[in-house]
Amino acid sequence: MTTTLARPAATDLEIRHAKQPRSGVLLTGAAWIIAVLFVLPVLWMILTSFHTEQDAAANPPKLAAPLSLEGYRSFFDSGPWPPLANSLTASVVSTLLVLLLALPAAYALSIKPVKKWSDVMFFFLSTKFLPVVAGLLPVYLFAQKVNLLDNIWLLIILYTSMNLPIAVWMLRSFLSEVPTEMLEAAQVDGAGLVRTLREIVAPVVAPGIAAAALICFIFSWNELLFARVLTGTRAETAPVFLTGFVTSQGLFLAKVCAASLVVSLPVLAAGFAAQDKLVQGLSMGAVR
């Protein structure tokens, strides 16, 4: 709905700025300068990750130093694969669980809404306000008792609860756009449930599912506090692995940059590939 509005808006803007070319050039320049400033630290991280440790630690910085894979080699030699695999498991499985729980819930909150559906929505949202750190201790004690410490399933459950409210809000917002008249018409025409879902519900909801999945994946992949407290050597995730670089000892800048980049790569790739989904997900479906 908003997209149809945005399109003529863009052409209007073109006309408007055709009238004032000089300030237009200045504003465009400002946009580029700010964008480059914001991306500069990341570019510096990429460049440094491909330098030798000696060159990476040079002051003033050696921009044109010869490229090297030393940083990556020493990072991959330090055993990052189990943590990366753990992160992948935790993020993917919890995202699937979130969708599994959120889809029916969102359905019950929109297409055939239960009584007081807005109270339920409010409850889901309020759990996002509850600081995770306030529940950390009981979770820790519980996990200790039932022997779930350092177990990836504990993180999967926690990440599911962390992201479920976001997914419910998003999916409800998408599902509420499903035209109920069409559902009724399909029912009258004798269309089966599968056909109704595939032809009427799916086209509206599929982008919502994609956006929810993207954002759940990113938040689970990024999570540190729970993972740090509740895992040890076995279920350690990638962000926990990165905390090994918190104290600076010796020459390791290239390695830190390589590690940070590799760990961020899945999020960067997913986020770039689905920028519009990112907006929908971050605003919990309020912004399309």
């Binding site: 991306v39 990165l242 590690a259 960067l268 986020g271």
Partner: peptide, 17 residues
């Protein structure tokens, strides 16, 4: 796209950077 890059760096990695 350049502008949103910082948000897509894993928070721990960004802090280390």
């Amino acid at each position: 796209t350049l502008m949103i890059t910082p948000f897509l760096v894993v928070p721990v990695a960004a802090a280390l950077l």
